[in-house]
Design a binder for these strands. Structure first.
Lengths: 224, 224
DNA sequence: TCCATATTCAATTGAGTTATTGAATATAGA
DNA sequence: TCTATATTCAATAACTCAATTGAATATGGA
């Protein structure tokens, strides 16, 4: 009956699996607080805070105590505070590791130089690279590099999983001074991918007389 | 910039928030394993195991090493194994606490005696108790106790949240020898609710000439 | 080169989660 | 009793996750 325990552990980790609730716990780690005080401290709406607190209570990570109009919540025990610091420490270590990797790559030299326009087309065709258009979708529809997928920054993290790990990612946006592609590259690298930005952007591509696609041959992106 | 870290911690706990993945980690804690070996050990399909392993890899909880046809996965570090035991220990303690509470209540006497038919109707009307019909939905539709909600066992855990904590829960099923209601009561108590079963079941209720409802006045249950 | 095999991908389906909104409930005090 | 206030409830819409299926990819050996 090992499953029973896994279920229980998962109930607990599920309650922890939300940045909001982690923040709530952090607040409660400082001491007992009313719902409103918690909401204030975290910037959540009162109703939302209340619901999150109930999730935490069902997982027995916090306890509530009603006194007059107020319900005072607090951590359910020292082991909860411990758990919180343990999991945070592991996350910090992982994060530091990622940073270290990135720095190492960056120092390695031209592996992470921006990509030139000339190289790109052939490498897209060969499947060696995946080109991401990280501009808003309307701009993509109005014209984009052939074979590029429309992946606005907001959905990149989610879509990343659907892109083969071995492919190198090349992101582009509106031009050399637009930062969208830089953000995309940073995120992709943080997830362990090889990623570069196109040295300039789509306007320059078009201006150079290179081919442009206006219909999307794989709607929502061939990958997912 | 505290949010950045909460996001990171949540990425990690999200990866842990699945009984399947916890089981995978447990297997990998014993040593390096190929995808197929992991699938075998856990009873998951290979594709499913592979996907879960990738989630774990994105969270940097495991690492993969390709060798020939096989990819060998292993835990990403000692801190992962530690985290795993820490979170399990907390869950165990919570679980034990719940058991203790239940036992305490049970020993307290008639608070947890089954409910008699006579008492029930008045208490439903007063809102003092919530009556749950835990039989399959077809049976509920064919006739049930007035005011009862249809909550088959499979969805009970989910629906429980929508039932006010202060209300006592009374569950019934097919009769005194049917165990559905017992399971429901056990689950509800494990979630910290006051819950009892009806001493017998619906057939006896009907046989006693008590009122029966056949249309559902609050479809899918008035609560959620 | 072709084949067998381990793994991953891509799409789909159903289920669960989150934030938001407005209403309901409960309590203290006038 | 009525009122003001803290909290919770209920419903909804948008998003995210899990399992399944069949196809695609990569590798080692015949």
């Amino acid at each position: 009956m090992k499953h029973r325990l896994y279920e229980e552990v998962a109930r607990l980790t599920k309650a922890l699996a939300s940045p909001r609730r982690l923040e709530l716990l952090e607040v409660l780690a400082q001491g007992e607080r009313s719902v409103e005080a918690v909401a204030q401290a975290t910037g959540l709406s009162v109703a939302n805070a209340s619901q999150h607190l109930q999730v935490l209570r069902e997982a027995r990570l916090v306890e509530g105590r009603k006194q007059g109009l107020f319900v005072h919540y607090r951590l359910a025990g020292d082991d909860v505070a411990n758990l919180l610091t343990t999991v945070t420490r592991v996350a910090e270590r992982r994060l530091a590791e990622v940073d270290r990797l990135i720095r190492k790559y960056r120092d390695q030299g031209d592996e992470f130089e921006p990509v030139g326009r000339r190289d790109l087309l052939a490498r897209v065709r060969s499947g060696e690279v995946v080109v991401l258009d990280v501009r808003p979708e309307e701009e993509y529809r109005a014209g984009h590099i052939p074979g590029a997928l429309s992946v606005p920054l907001a959905v990149l993290d989610r879509r990343l999983r659907a892109i083969p790990r071995k492919a190198e990612i090349v992101a582009y946006c509106r031009g050399p001074f637009c930062l969208l592609a830089d953000d995309a590259v940073r995120l992709a690298r943080a997830r362990g991918r090889r990623a570069r930005r196109l040295e300039d952007g789509f306007p320059e591509w078009r201006a150079a007389g290179l081919p442009v696609e206006t219909e999307d041959p794989r709607p929502e992106g061939g990958y997912r």
